[in-house]
Design a protein around this nucleic acid. Structure first.
Lengths: 206, 206
DNA sequence: CGATGGATTGCACTGAGTGCAAGTGGTGCC
DNA sequence: GGCACCACTTGCACTCAGTGCAATCCATCG
């Protein structure tokens, strides 16, 4: 009980992560209540019971409080991906992404709701998505893909996620999201395997 | 000489656009000289010979001065796309994009140079790319693609642009960029037509 | 118990971004 | 020409995001 764990189960868990989550939670609640622009960092820090300065020990910016991944999230996604290594890049990638988004569905739904009211926040969301791209690209390269195909595959997968997310009504619940996402992945796989048909029918692959 | 032109050749040309270009030019020069963070908006406005307040009449933010498209650019890209309508979505899209990036190569190169020194600016660049996505997606839908395939195709094309841009040495000149971009587009078309091979060889399309 | 180091906090400061109201200059209309 | 109109510019004042610094608090380890 007293000995240090040989391998910390979740490296960033602890008081710090708790504070991080309290801050994010406060931020999400306030954004949902009043709108992003109407919430100051003092408000967030106040509701989370920490000082304004502490907010900036955890987040680089106000938007980060809404869009940054959980401190453990990168590692979790990475291990999900690792579990699916070797069984086909596309299958592994999409399975891991789906698991991941299901596990995070509460936060994902909160983001969707807030974005629905304030579309201009989409710019920050796009940036958040780009962080995923780094992880996915990295993993795909480890699976043996060259840099460029890895970029394309990651781009396709993220396009699926994005399209699903944007056309999803958060009030409809997570099941809707999951099934739509699965459809999107399947459509992408089928489309790229057979060539997504285009009007005019020119056979250019896409 | 005195009659108003029936159709304004470029709707946003004029004194306002001139100021816009002077401001962008000043911003690019200063960013290249000192680095993004070391340049204030007063600096930019000063060099462009306008007031600080006027800067904000033209740009929403400091980053916008570097990454916003030229006021005429959207229209220009749209008309390039229009020229290539009907001849196959992928071909038209990539041709228009290539033309467009060649025409803009000075600014593109400047951005590349500045990003090389300050990678953290990439977040803004990603946002700028996302604006393209809107235009491309719109055009693809007009070509008869459903929302989702349109998203995927646009995502692939932008992945090509992004990968080419990021792996390009701006000092090498625009020809390098163009030929790399063309290669990337060809690779994407071939890869998606035949299925990008993955290690393990599972036949999942990607 | 005392030392050590990470995290929190308060304070002060720079600079981004905005609202407002007062110029300023050009354009067309009488 | 004179005048009204309009779009753009400018200065001013203000809020608030974000940062550096130094003091403090607290948990853990020896």
């Amino acid at each position: 009980m007293s000995s240090a764990p040989v391998v910390p189960a979740a490296p960033t868990d602890g008081a710090k992560t708790d504070r991080w989550r309290r801050l994010r939670s406060a931020a999400i609640d306030l954004f949902a209540e009043r709108g992003f622009a109407e919430v100051s960092i003092d408000d967030i820090a106040g509701r989370a019971g920490v000082s304004r300065r502490t907010f900036f020990n955890h987040f680089d910016s106000k938007a980060a409080a809404l869009f940054d991944p959980d401190p453990t999230e990168q590692a979790v996604l990475a291990s999900r991906l690792a579990e699916h290594a070797g069984g086909g890049a596309w299958t592994g990638l999409t399975t891991a992404l789906e698991e991941h988004l299901v596990a995070e569905h509460r936060v994902v739904a909160a983001r969707r709701q807030i974005l629905a009211n304030e579309p201009e926040l989409d710019r920050h969301h796009v940036v958040a998505n780009a962080k995923f791209e780094v992880v996915l690209h990295q993993w795909l390269r480890e699976q043996g893909l060259a840099p460029f195909p890895a970029r394309v595959v990651a781009g396709i997968a993220l396009a699926c996620v994005r399209e699903t997310f944007m056309s999803w009504d958060a009030a409809a619940g997570p099941e809707e999201f999951t099934s739509s996402l699965r459809d999107a992945f399947a459509l992408a796989a089928a489309g790229t395997a057979t060539g997504i048909s285009v009007s005019g029918g020119a056979s250019v692959g896409l």
